[in-house]
């Protein structure tokens, strides 16, 4: 029996559940490895060679090389683990978050300072579909 997953109807949002975690296990464990300085050095020296050591799909490896955080989340990445890639690049968490939105880092910070993204119009997927 399929389990109830009502969170599919929230726009611009991927819930990191056990299915996503299963798809993203290798990707997220690769990210965790970047907590060690020696691994960060090896990754920086040759990203492709380092990624080839991990049980990841080609799409995930390319997503890392492209720093495509939305794409990585779709393939099972979780933002807290993906942030280790950003940290390796010297990015702040706000910069990492901003890359997933329509704004650049400055625009994102300005939106936050003005009170953040409002809830109205951002609750259900149909609200985004009708907007497009």
């Amino acid at each position: 029996m399929a389990l109830d997953k009502p969170y599919g109807d929230v726009p611009g949002t991927t819930i990191f559940d056990a299915d996503q975690a299963r798809k993203g296990y290798g990707l997220n464990q690769f990210c965790m490895s970047l907590m060690k300085a020696e691994n960060r050095d090896r990754f920086r020296a040759d990203e492709r060679a380092y990624l080839d050591e991990w049980a990841m799909t080609e799409e995930q490896k390319q997503g890392v090389i492209d720093r495509d955080f939305n794409g990585l989340i779709a393939t099972g990445g979780n933002v807290y683990f993906l942030a280790k890639i950003g940290a390796t690049d010297g990015m702040s968490f706000v910069q990492i978050v901003a890359t997933m939105t329509e704004n650049d880092a400055e625009g994102h910070a300005a939106m936050m300072a003005a009170g953040g993204r409002p809830i109205d119009g951002n609750r259900y997927t149909h609200e985004w579909e009708s907007r497009a």
Binding site: T13, I73, F93, M100, T101, G115, I119
Partner: peptide
């Protein structure tokens, strides 16, 4: 919310 295109959501109510 820290992920995806909806990142930055705030709901004071």
């Amino acid at each position: 919310q820290l992920q995806g295109p909806r990142a930055g959501l705030i709901n004071p109510d």
